[in-house]
Amino acid sequence: MADWLEKLKSDFILNFVEDNRWMNITRGLKNTVIITIFAAIIGVILGLTVAAIRTTYDKNRETMKKNGGIGYWVMTFLNNVCKIYLSIFRGTPVVVQLMIMFYIIFASSTHGVMVAIISFGINSGAYVAEIFRGGIMSIDNGQFEAGRSLGFNYLQTMIFVVLPQVFKNILPTLLNEFIALLKETSVAGYVGVTDLTRGGYIIRGVTFSAFMPLVGIAIIYYVMVMLLTHLVSRIERRLKKSER
């Protein structure tokens, strides 16, 4: 057997097999997956809410102002809160947000994974909100008018007419946001959360060999991203078909 192959094999054994070091990888992978999934759920809920508030405000400002009352001021206030949220969370690096969450806001918490989920969820929500908002705004106003003219109220028009079209249009973009989120969670190690990246990093610290653990986790990320990308393109093809 060639020398380099032999070297690769002993390197592999040193980094992953000895002392069950592979467990750093699996434990990290588990956390990465958990953080990504739950952050994505928070992101979608938050994003949809923010997008709903902002588009409702934009589309009904005139009516609400005419009818007067508290509703208009409540919506104006909520709209501004949403704007500030979007501006802050899209205007600062996610690592900084994560550290502020971990060392300031949740300083007393020992649940690193939980804090990471909340941080990435809130951050992702800002991007998802703009994806949803863009999706809603891209629907022809005639669709709103047709829904309203049939007698649906604003919310019913949204739910029955507009949002199904929005979901269809933005699904690929939304899944791409989840892929970005998956990769972004690799900074969780900054606050001591043992994610996949951190797992590889820990092995490197013990074995003093960089190649095997780092390339190893890179491959794992790559495979996950490729699987998701494949899923996105399959969904895209399906959606195109139903449009014929």
Binding site: D140, G142, Q143, E145, A146, R148, S149, L150, G151, V161, Q165, E243
Partner: peptide, 15 residues
């Protein structure tokens, strides 16, 4: 509006 139907220039059917 339920009692006032409307037909638009651009049809506005739900695609």
């Amino acid at each position: 509006r339920q009692k006032m139907g409307m037909v638009f220039q651009h049809f506005n059917l739900f695609p």
